[in-house]
Design a protein around this nucleic acid. Structure first.
Lengths: 198, 198
DNA sequence: GTCTATAAACGGATAGAC
DNA sequence: GTCTATCCGTTTATAGAC
């Protein structure tokens, strides 16, 4: 391999491109984003991009990897918290904190998943994997709370987030995310290890 | 105006194009869909499209109108049912029935909203309006159930649908929609005119 | 009103100089 | 390893014949 994954000093040009791709693809979507857009954001000449990524798809793939990396980091922070309720609520808190960005551009993972599912390339499997990691983590929290229906609850929680992200974005209204965040918090509180109040 | 909105007999070429656009844009997304794709689906020669729609955006707009029309029709059917609970559950039932299509292509309105929000054109306002009609209708049902937090519940319901549509599509798993549909049905049942069990 | 041929623009990708 | 110039396919959109 020609490129070391992480050089000791500043981000390599390859990393700069991957991170720029993650950001610009989130803001503009993959369809409307040109290689020139990404190159400009990374402050790299257009033609030079092809030295690091042979196709646009490889750049999209690198952006997904960047999101996956970010998710792993988030999870490791959450896992330091004492109870599963704390961990889930901290996840919620992060979503609400990001509400302004979400109102403008939607959920980074969700919008990407939505767009990639329409394309022929196999990248949809990559983004599905990222989503599955989050789903599995949430399921583990509900299971730690003693819920037998942990998977269903995890699906409901992530779906609630993806859905409210879409509405927040569609109506450009961060308040929707804030309000739904509070509702979900009450919902988590209401889930003892007992009843199955849907 | 040159074109009558509805000629007595078969769908006009303009209508054929609008309906073909609605379907193909759902299946492929606006970005990857070419005018040639829509023209082929409508069985109209490519160049001729421009006689009816001056730009691709106008065709997208017509597709959104078709979705709005479809929604109004659905609502008028639901409104014939006796109780708000019946009406909401019938809405759920329709979503679950469509789960195979959703697994393949996502929610028609949601995927469109997600994609249009990334584009410079003003079409995002059009699709937001469609979403708002559904939201307002759901709110009216919860209000008829005596809930003071009707708007919040309506947002939660539509968000749940949009979110589970995204997951159903991402994982190509219709079972997710079926399972979440049952959960939401129990949730609606649990909402008396009394407690605010989030 | 309907359709064909083609112009005009754009964007992904490559060749090759430095 | 870095960058410029350019090719080439695709797609939107138009001109104009029928």
């Amino acid at each position: 391999m020609t490129h070391s994954k992480t050089s000791g000093k500043a981000a390599s040009k390859r990393e700069r491109l991957a991170n720029a791709a993650a950001q610009v693809l989130h803001e503009q979507g993959v369809a409307t984003t040109t290689l020139a857009d990404i190159a400009r954001a990374a402050d790299v000449p257009v033609g030079n991009v092809y030295y690091y990524f042979k196709t646009k798809d490889q750049l999209v793939e690198a952006a997904i990897d960047a999101h996956a990396q970010h998710l792993r980091q988030l999870i490791s922070v959450l896992d330091a918290l004492p109870t599963p309720q704390d961990r889930l609520k901290a996840l919620l808190g992060g979503w609400v904190e990001q509400r302004e960005v979400t109102a403008r551009y939607g959920c980074p993972t969700g919008t990407l998943a939505s767009e990639l599912d329409k394309r022929a390339d196999g990248l949809d499997a990559n983004i599905a994997e990222v989503m599955r990691v989050l789903l599995d983590w949430a399921e583990a929290q509900f299971r730690a709370m003693g819920r037998a229906d942990a998977r269903e609850l995890a699906v409901a929680l992530i779906a609630a987030y993806q859905g409210i992200s879409l509405l927040t974005n569609t109506f450009r209204d961060p308040g929707l995310m804030a309000s739904e965040g509070r509702r979900l918090e009450r919902w988590i509180d209401s889930l003892g290890s007992a009843a199955s109040s849907a």
